[in-house]
Simulated assay, not measured.
Amino acid sequence: MTLVFNQKLAPKIPAISFVTVLGAECGFYRRLRSRLGAPKAITATAHKLARLFYQIWATTGQYLDPDIDYYQQKYQEQVLKSLRNKANALGLELVPISPSTLNTSSSLNHAT
């Protein structure tokens, strides 16, 4: 029996393992998988892991892994920035809703 080593698949093996792991890179993989599909998400995650590996290697192991909460906060900021840009392109402005406004509007809805 001959063991065949697939050179194209080898860099993607660590990325495939992100299906069940928690962490910032896992969130990256899951977001890309929902948008692009599994094969492209695996390839993109493999590229990101290769860049992280090079960063660790070049800085002699000085790398701090951000947790999933940091990644989610960064992603929410990115989505909000995108919404602001889209609103500005349409000549609109995003205005944050205060908690007191939410309570007032909900009580008005129940009164009518």
Rank of each mutant, 00 (worst) to 15 (best):
Y54K: 05
P66L: 02
A46W: 00
V79N: 11
Q7W: 12
T2H: 14
E25L: 01
T2K: 12
L49P: 01
K74F: 07
I97T: 10
Q73W: 04
G23P: 01
T43E: 05
A87S: 05
S107T: 14
Q72L: 09
I42T: 06
Y54G: 00
S106E: 08
D67F: 02
T101C: 03
L32A: 06
S106C: 05
R51M: 11
N6Y: 07
Q73M: 09
V95E: 14
K86Q: 12
N6K: 08
K86S: 09
E25G: 01
I13C: 02
E77H: 13
E93G: 02
V79E: 13
T43G: 02
D67H: 03
V95S: 07
L52A: 04
T112M: 03
P14V: 05
G23W: 02
L102C: 10
A87W: 06
R35V: 04
P96M: 02
R30N: 04
R84A: 04
Q55W: 05
K48R: 09
L83F: 10
T112K: 06
F18Y: 15
Q76W: 09
Y71H: 06
Y70S: 10
I16S: 03
T104D: 14
P39L: 06
T101L: 08
Y54V: 04
W57G: 01
Y63R: 12
T45Y: 00
G91I: 13
T101R: 11
L32Q: 07
P66K: 01
I56P: 00
R31V: 03
D67K: 05
R30E: 05
Q55K: 09
S100G: 06
P99C: 08
G91A: 08
T101S: 14
Y71K: 02
T20C: 03
A46I: 03
Q76A: 11
S98P: 02
F18V: 01
K81W: 01
K12A: 03
L80A: 15
Y54D: 03
T112D: 03
L108W: 09
G37M: 14
L90D: 13
S82W: 07
F53E: 02
K48N: 01
N88E: 13
D67P: 00
Y75V: 07
L92T: 06
R33E: 09
P96N: 10
G23C: 07
S34W: 04
I42N: 00
Y29L: 04
L9G: 10
F18Q: 01
R33H: 08
M1R: 15
Y29P: 00
L80M: 15
T45P: 00
T2C: 04
G27L: 01
P96A: 06
S34Q: 13
Y29S: 01
P99L: 08
T59R: 04
K12H: 13
H110T: 12
I68V: 08
W57R: 11
G27I: 00
A38V: 14
R33F: 02
R31D: 01
N103M: 14
A10E: 15
P11L: 11
L49M: 13
Y75H: 09
T60V: 04
L22F: 13
L9V: 13
P96G: 09
Y75Q: 12
L52I: 15
T2Y: 07
L80G: 12
A50Q: 14
P96W: 03
L94I: 15
K8G: 11
Y70K: 09
Y75C: 08
S82G: 10
Q73D: 14
L108V: 08
A50D: 07
L83E: 14
I42L: 01
I13T: 07
